[in-house]
Nucleic acid binder design. Structure first.
Lengths: 235, 235
DNA sequence: ACCTGAACACCGTTCAAGT
DNA sequence: ACCTGAACACCGTTCAAGT
């Protein structure tokens, strides 16, 4: 982050919308979602706040636009080289890779309504692969929503944000609470705790950014795909 | 929302932390997540901002605390009255109901790291049911993460927030874009569009608050449970 | 311990005015 | 159309001081 805006910047650039979104992505990657402010972008570009406001509209709009960009970074595998269930697995992992490259903004895609046609190529691909698998009509849309909702949702939860301004020591506090659970009232949990400490949902204190859950995602994905396989309509 | 704080309020109440969280939940239910500010709570309680700040700490902390409350509203079914897979389905639907009753704060549970022991009874229940089903050791934690990540994640995406300050007309704009997709480049999507318009992920413009996706959730849940059934380790 | 009262730094957004 | 320059209303958070 340049501490002072380049004074000559405004003399040259016409300040396109693309430039605004570029520096927005840069800021959110480096400093987090809370740091992604209109004024921060303006500072970085050596421009008045209203200038960036003019190009991207409200801040909510800006955040959505930056999040939409991630769909461009998902490289889809060739459907002819895989069976349909294999293909879905590969896409899911590609999706995960893309989100993990921009974790601060990626989870927004799961929380904010994204209304961009930029995602339509992916939608088309998934649908056509599901069609080949034998899904049709209602079962097609159901399978689609199951897959997309699972991938987008599970990864969003994995990348949950840690409170940026939280009280220091809340992690230690929670860890301590977990260790002091009564084995009589929580027999299953306490016996599984060695495997779940900071590694399972609701019993972890680090986000997926620091503690990736790749193995857990693969396992969950396998479960879902196997369920999809069993729900292909019989012809 | 009372427009003016009761002047006698501060004379009586000692202002407990519980009271702060109560009015916080009320505000977020009525006016949305952006309206949940420390100052708004202080106004409602007829108190200085620093008073509520003293009880709940930072705003991030406050939001997390309010979100954690939802776990109390999930009423768990009796495991002895269901098979393990049935039981998981019932829990998932209960979970969905609880989240839909406080949609503005519920999705925070999927986005923010929740570190509260208040969720441990649910964790314990799920684990013990999965144990009965035959999962153990690593497969137990995998099944747990698959189920919890799916439910929490899918529902978070369903309840995605609509931008509160967005430009008017962005919905119509997106709808129009969808209708103008080229059938040659998007054959599967355009032919499935009647079923997907405003009803499927990435092709909707209303949140699950206005357009609930109960049917899609049930279908996805069935897929996941069927996948779990297939992944029970053989003894 | 709990809260008042006031201040500080930082926001998004909106004007009018320039070019 | 695009941006300056300034202002407005609203934040979270932090002080010192009271009780």
């Amino acid at each position: 982050m340049t501490k002072a805006a380049k004074p000559d910047a405004k003399a040259r650039l016409p300040l396109t919308r693309k430039a605004v979104l570029d520096t927005a992505l840069k800021i959110v990657d480096e400093a987090g979602l809370d740091a992604l402010t209109i004024r921060a972008i303006a500072r970085e570009l050596g421009v008045y706040p209203n200038a960036v406001h003019w190009h991207v509209g409200s801040r909510t709009n800006l955040v959505g636009a930056v999040a939409s960009r991630l769909f461009d970074e998902i490289t889809l595998p060739d459907p002819r080289k895989h069976t349909w269930d294999e293909w879905l697995e590969v896409v899911a992992r590609q999706w995960r890779d893309a989100m993990h490259q921009h974790p601060n903004i990626a989870m927004v895609a799961g929380t904010h309504l994204v209304t961009t046609t930029g995602a339509m190529p992916i939608v088309e691909r998934i649908l056509s692969v599901l069609l080949d698998a034998g899904f049709e009509d209602e079962s097609l849309v159901d399978a689609y929503n199951a897959f997309v909702g699972f991938v987008l949702g599970w990864l969003t939860v994995e990348l949950s944000r840690e409170p940026e301004n939280a009280d220091r020591g809340w992690k230690d506090e929670f860890e301590e609470d977990l260790d002091q659970l009564d084995p009589n009232t929580f027999p299953a949990l306490t016996s599984a705790m060695p495997r779940m400490r900071n590694a399972a949902f609701l019993t972890r204190w680090d986000s997926g950014r620091q503690q990736p859950m790749a193995g857990a995602f693969d396992a969950a994905l396998t479960v879902l795909i196997s369920g999809l396989r069993a729900s292909v309509p019989k012809r």
